[in-house]
Simulated scan of single mutants.
Amino acid sequence: MGVLMAGTSAAQPAAEPPIFVLNSLQADVSVIDPATWTERGRIATGKEPHHLYLTPDEKSLIVANALSDSLTFVDPRTGQVQRTVNGVVDPYHLRFSPDMKWLVTAANRLNHVDFYRWDGSDLTLVKRVPTSRTPSHLWIDAASRTVYSSMQDSDELVAIDIATQTIRWRSPTGAMPADVYGSPDGKLLFVGLTGSDSVEVFDITGPQPRSVQRIKTGKGAHAFRAAGDGRHLFVSNRVANTISKIDMQSLQVVDSYPAPGGPDCMDVSADGRYLYVSARWARKLLVIDTQQRKVAQEVRVGKSPHGVWTLRHAPR
């Protein structure tokens, strides 16, 4: 573990930090210029890049290539490939702990969650935790004590203790749980039910979780992104072709926006006005104006676009 290979450049620097869109079925990343709304380059990665995450020092964006068992490190400001780390098994989803000590990956195909020690440069596998069927998305609490993982094909939410790297509890969920998001006060978890039309809300203040509400958003509720104001949360409804805005205090949908083509992952502009959304079935990046409630821009990208990210985003 931790063997680093030199990378190569696949994009040119730009004045504005680019928007990255992962093309899961083309093994590459579209680099979008937010000034001209054009694709100005592609970054070659391993097979099936699905999700990405910024390193704690904010110098590298890590693209996880699930089918190639590798991570591609990219400069988030220029789009230049910095290096590749091989031997990371089936990294479908990934997240750093807030204390910056751990990189946690979900092996979607192989039914385990891995804990890698992060020393600021290299990764060392410390523990592989068997889960249940198809770990999908991860969330880590602010205290870096617990990893929460949805189990897409066994309809569960699993909590893993970081100190011991053992499963603390399991809880049944609605159909096909996907993304997970924790409320700013640490009391609630929101789980997108892709096999349903709702977001399930869990109270996690006690020793066992308690399902307290299902918020109806739209068919195929899938991925989350914070609005940046500490109160609202966006969720993509992949089948309904909409984005819903949830009030995390009232647990109600307070707004909705059109997002044709199978909306999946999102990012939010620094001022909170625009949503950058991957349209999974339409092979596009959508730029949605939340004030005018319409698609303001469309950019053609690769096959099955998934993860979306930019350095200049609203607070998480």
Rank of each mutant, 00 (worst) to 15 (best):
F224I: 12
F224E: 04
R225I: 08
R225D: 02
R225M: 03
A226R: 11
A226Y: 06
A226M: 08
A227Q: 14
A227R: 15
A227D: 11
G228C: 10
G228A: 11
D229Q: 09
D229V: 08
D229C: 04
G230N: 11
R231S: 01
L233T: 13
L233D: 11
L233N: 11
F234R: 03
V235T: 13
V235K: 13
S236W: 09
S236F: 05
R238Y: 01
V239Q: 09
V239N: 12
V239T: 15
N241P: 01
T242K: 02
S244G: 07
S244K: 15
K245Y: 00
K245V: 12
I246Q: 02
M248T: 15
Q249R: 15
S250A: 12
S250H: 11
S250G: 03
Q252K: 14
Q252R: 13
V253T: 05
V253D: 01
D255G: 07
D255M: 05
D255K: 04
D255I: 13
Y257K: 10
Y257I: 12
P258A: 06
P258Q: 10
P258E: 09
P260N: 04
G262A: 05
G262W: 06
P263N: 06
P263I: 06
D264F: 00
M266G: 01
M266P: 01
V268T: 08
V268F: 00
V268W: 01
V268K: 04
S269H: 06
A270I: 11
A270L: 13
G272L: 06
G272W: 13
R273Y: 03
R273T: 11
R273A: 03
Y274M: 08
L275A: 04
L275Y: 08
Y276Q: 02
V277F: 07
A279M: 09
R280Y: 06
W281Q: 07
W281L: 09
W281G: 00
A282C: 08
A282Q: 13
R283T: 12
R283Q: 09
R283H: 07
K284V: 07
K284R: 15
L285W: 02
L285C: 00
L285F: 05
L286R: 11
L286I: 14
L286G: 07
V287H: 06
V287Q: 12
V287M: 10
V287K: 15
I288R: 04
I288V: 14
I288S: 04
I288Y: 07
I288K: 10
D289M: 11
D289Q: 13
D289S: 10
T290M: 15
T290I: 12
Q291P: 00
Q291G: 04
Q291V: 15
Q291I: 15
Q292S: 12
Q292W: 08
R293V: 10
K294H: 12
K294A: 10
K294R: 15
V295L: 03
A296C: 08
A296R: 13
Q297I: 01
Q297K: 14
